[in-house]
């Protein structure tokens, strides 16, 4: 990875673009507005609370998120051709050989296994592919992308085709990790969503780091490749689903009840203690 890339990864202090006295005022007013309005249930109040929140944010951080967003294109070279888009990066080291990791990236149809917000990827001809992502309220967003550059075991770069609803571009670099620890994958991408400015502004006001989801996706890829599964606790029991005592759950006996034992063991159980005890005893 070049030094420019490393610096980007590190981030840096954001510029302060307003005066101290103004910041104090904004912090105070914004804080009070947010605090008060968040206690109200009406949606109008919540919207105003967001305005208050952004004043608070500006007061504390000394800059407007909007300011930063609008000037995103002044930052040095964003990923190819997406001026003003959201830039993301992630790095992960996977304990698998370089060629295995590269080949996994060539199997785009399998991306939804580890990319949480992808619904499907359909591989078309000429290095093109059709991507469908999950969007709020059960809707989906689709776009077509093409591979612009690929060097086996080193690099894959892509870009959405002209007029895509979600304009995006990016590249994945592969390299052998130091000390034989597997393969390091660097992903950089940028995108501009429809109604992007609103969505991005909201996301930024709420403090979400755009790289967060990409990092999570890369972690899932690592888990999948190293262990064959993605760890989860979704669907496990907890006391928030508790039912009153005495009320039986029928599934207990059905799933683990002794009637599920195989016949030999059953017979053994029946005749115990005359016979050997059942195998699991």
């Amino acid at each position: 990875m070049n030094s420019n890339g490393i610096q980007r990864g590190m981030g840096g202090a954001r510029g302060v673009d307003i005066a101290d006295i103004e910041r104090l005022g904004l912090t105070a007013i914004g804080g009070m507005l947010t605090g008060y309005l968040l206690t109200r249930k009406a949606w109008g109040a919540r919207a105003l609370a967001m305005v208050g929140g952004s004043m608070l944010y500006r007061g504390i951080c000394g800059h407007w998120p909007m300011h930063e967003f609008l000037h995103a294109d002044q930052e040095p070279e964003s990923a190819r051709g997406i001026d003003g888009g959201i830039e993301m990066h992630a790095v992960v080291t996977i304990r698998s050989p370089l060629s295995d990791v590269y080949n996994r990236w060539c199997d785009m149809a399998a991306f939804p296994q580890f990319m949480k917000y992808l619904e499907s990827v359909e591989v078309l001809s000429d290095g093109k592919s059709r991507w469908t992502a999950k969007a709020p309220l059960g809707t989906t967003l689709s776009w077509t992308a093409e591979i612009t550059h690929a060097e086996p075991n080193q690099l894959i770069a892509w870009q959405s085709v002209h007029d895509a609803m979600v304009a995006n571009a990016g590249e994945v670099r592969f390299e052998e990790a130091a000390g034989g620890r597997g393969t390091t994958v660097h992903v950089r991408m940028a995108y501009r969503a429809p109604f992007g400015s609103v969505g991005v502004l909201l996301a930024k006001l709420l403090g979400e780091n755009p790289s967060h989801h990409l990092n999570e996706d890369m972690k899932r890829l690592k888990q999948l490749m190293e262990t064959g599964e993605v760890p989860t606790v979704e669907g496990q029991p907890h006391g928030r689903q508790a039912i009153p005592p005495g009320e039986e759950r029928p599934d207990l006996e059905r799933r683990y009840g002794w009637h599920e034992r195989d016949k030999v063991e059953e017979a053994s159980w029946e005749s115990f203690p005359a016979s050997d005890p059942p195998a699991h005893w």
Binding site: E229, T232, P237, G239, P245, E247, R249, L252
Partner: peptide, 12 residues
């Protein structure tokens, strides 16, 4: 508490 039984969630 009386809670649901756990189920297999992953292959391993």
């Amino acid at each position: 508490e009386n809670v649901p039984d756990p189920t297999i969630l992953n292959p391993r």
